[in-house]
């Protein structure tokens, strides 16, 4: 996990839409194991609260923690079964013998999706969550900036595989390294919806044509 590979790519565009930009992430170090906040060891955080206002706060805390956790380990796609599994260190705390049950997790997921911090990979089957610890917009801007930097004028065509394997000019990995094709496709679909790219399907190979104003 290279610690700061994404910095140069990010500097090119606004960082304001990075989800954790407003308040610093809970873990201070960008490498190593994730540092949990002290409330992770507070038993009642694992029971959905009765009082509506407290529940709001509780959902907020979990949402922020999940995003920070994903950002730390660069989790793009999160399987439902992994989140519910006994070995998931985020949603259970063995020291205090507490865990979020499935009902509670469903509530958390609904909250993330509602807030636009996550989305189900498929709406008909809720088994994989795309985690937006950076917004789709931010990823899209980063990819566009990279394409522009690499000298591809308007009309540059890439396959998804090319984009995923892309490296910076100086050889460092790009900010979105490790992003699954499924996730990248979602990013590009967003660009297509804004008229800034066209997705192409050539004999089963997905490609993308960027429409970038030559600057």
């Amino acid at each position: 996990m290279p610690p700061s590979s994404s910095r140069t790519a990010l500097d090119a565009n606004s960082q304001s839409s990075v989800p954790t930009a407003a308040s610093p992430p809970l873990s201070t170090s960008s490498s190593g194991t994730f540092r949990f906040p002290s409330w992770h060891a507070y038993p009642p955080l694992y029971t959905i609260q009765l009082c509506a206002r407290t529940r709001e706060r509780q959902l907020y805390l979990w949402r922020r923690l999940a995003l920070d956790y994903c950002a730390h380990y660069r989790i793009f796609c999160w399987e439902r079964s992994d989140m519910l599994g006994a070995e998931c260190e985020l949603f259970c705390n063995r020291t205090i013998h507490r865990r979020l049950n499935e009902e509670a997790m469903c509530l958390l997921w609904r909250d993330w999706v509602q807030r636009g911090d996550a989305a189900w990979a498929r709406n008909d089957r809720h088994d994989t969550l795309l985690m937006f610890w950076r917004s789709l917009r931010t990823w899209a801007d980063e990819i566009r900036a990279h394409v522009r930097r690499c000298g591809q004028a308007a009309g540059g065509i890439y396959t998804l595989q090319e984009l995923l394997k892309a490296v910076e000019v100086d050889g460092r990995p790009v900010g979105w390294h490790g992003m699954p094709p499924l996730f990248l496709q979602r990013v590009l679909e967003g660009l297509q919806a804004d008229g800034q790219a066209v997705l192409l399907d050539a004999h089963g190979t997905l490609g993308v044509k960027f429409s970038i104003d030559p600057r």
Binding site: P43, P44, Y46, T47, C51, R53, T54, H97
Partner: peptide
């Protein structure tokens, strides 16, 4: 509970509800 000072916890081994004063736990 309404003030958010006390949180409920149903996860205790004996299934009896605990009421936690979170301000008393840990050092922020």
């Amino acid at each position: 509970l309404d003030a958010g000072i006390v949180w409920v916890d149903d996860g205790h081994a004996d299934r009896k509800r605990c009421y936690w004063v979170l301000g008393l736990l840990g050092t922020p």
